[in-house]
Each structure stands twice: as structure tokens, then as C-alpha cells.
Design a protein around this nucleic acid. Structure first.
Lengths: 111, 111
DNA sequence: ATATAATATGAATGGTTATTCATATGAACA
DNA sequence: TGTTCATATGAATAACCATTCATATTATAT
């Protein structure tokens, strides 16, 4: 005989649950780190600011593909841009980016 | 006149770059957290172990949908299962899950 | 052993998204 | 001011993925 009460478990779990909006924002943040290309871009920018062409060369990809991804990263406020002569140099915009990447690395290494 | 040397910037960035495999594993980890349903499941399990039906009720979703997502979370070693009578109770399998969720919350709150 | 309740699975569908190609924009330097 | 180079953009394509519906599997408890 089961002692499991769905209602009790569910109503208990409902307390202190993050708001829909917080959860939504959070998944959107993690989506930024859930793509191979974007993660590599962020790792590249961890060391120094770079222009689009630099990143495209580094990753062996089309300039256009990098540009599209940089736009997403900029919208997500993970990356910022400044002009230097002919080039636009991108760098990390958020102190948390490194922290989140570290969090991921740490997890991966302990396997 | 530009002082920017693509070759220099790129070869500098290539040093100490994580391996393809590490980056791949990392994006796969973040993919787990990049879905609204999965994040809510993880938050639910943060408090107590629950069966599939509990989670489906809590989130107002089909049992089948939850089951599919639990399979992914189990494959990703973020969640584990044990049988208790008629039910299979799921719980977090990884001490890092909470840490990563906290990381996300922290980031969101400072906006 | 069988019936039942809980969970898992497979195929199908719709929605999302990364990339490419072609082209537009825009700033810089002559 | 015009030309050139770096970057951005739009449309199209293809791959991916979450959900649903229908059904299969599995363990339990009688």
C-alpha cells in the first residue's frame, strides 16, 4: 500500500518556488551558454578583447556566423563593444560570465 | 592606420584554450539548464524527492512530457531515481546542480 | 498468476535556432 | 567626398528539440 500523497508533496513543493519571470530569465541566461560557438566566443574574450574577424579566424568559422552570435551575446548583456579605429573590439560585459564559465568547468572536471 | 594584427591576437588566444571535448561537455551541461521545464523540475527536486506524477501536477503538464525530460536529466547525471513501493522517486544526483542554479539566480537578481 | 497503477517509449508535429550566402550599412582615412 | 574595409543584416535552409498522443513495459499487491 502506498503512503505517497501527491497533493501533500505538490503543495509543499509550491512554497518558495521562484517566480515564472525569474525562471524564464534564468533559462534565457543559460541558453547563452548552451551553444558550442557562443561558449568558445566567451572563452576567447576571457583573455582579451577581439574583433569579429579575429574570432572567426580563431574558430574557423564565417564572419557572418560570429556576427550573428555576437548580436545575441550583446542582447543578453554578456558582451560589449567599442570601436578602435577600423575595428570594433568585443569584450565581456559581465563579471558573472567568468563565474558561470568556471562553474561549468568545475563541474566537468569532476567526472 | 590600423595597428591591429589578426594573426597576433588569434595565436595569443589559442593558448590555454579548453579542449574541444571539455567545451562540448560544458555546453551539454548548460543545455540541461536552458529549458524552462527542466529548470522547474530541478527547482522542484531541490526541496524533496518527487515522483513523475507529482512533478506533472506541480507544473501542470502531461506525465509523458515530464518523463521525457527526466530521462534527459538522468542521462546528464543531474537526477537519480529510486523505487519506493509503487512509485519511482526522483532526486538531484549532483551536488553541483544547486550550485549552478544559485549561480543563475545570483546573476538574474543583479539586474 | 493476474490485474492494475505508475512509468517509459516511439512516432509525429510544430516551433525554434544556428549557419550560409548574398548584400547592405557605416565609419575611417586618403 | 569618395572609396575601402569591417561589420551587420535578411532570407533561406537544415538540424534540432519539446511536447503530445497512443501504447508498451514493468513492478506491485491482491
Amino acid at each position: 500500500m502506498s503512503v505517497h500523497s501527491h497533493e501533500a508533496v505538490v503543495s509543499r513543493a509550491k512554497k518558495d518556488f521562484p517566480s515564472e519571470e525569474e525562471l524564464y530569465d534564468m533559462t534565457n541566461l543559460f541558453k547563452m551558454f548552451a551553444d558550442f560557438t557562443r561558449v568558445r566566443i566567451l572563452f576567447a574574450l576571457l583573455r582579451s578583447e577581439m574583433c569579429v574577424i579575429d574570432i572567426a579566424m580563431l574558430l574557423g568559422m564565417e564572419q557572418s556566423a560570429i556576427s550573428h552570435q555576437l548580436r545575441l551575446l550583446k542582447q543578453g548583456k554578456l558582451v560589449k563593444a567599442r570601436r578602435e579605429g577600423k575595428h570594433i573590439l568585443y569584450s565581456l560585459d559581465d563579471s558573472h560570465v567568468e563565474q558561470i564559465l568556471d562553474c561549468g568547468i568545475e563541474h566537468i572536471e569532476e567526472r
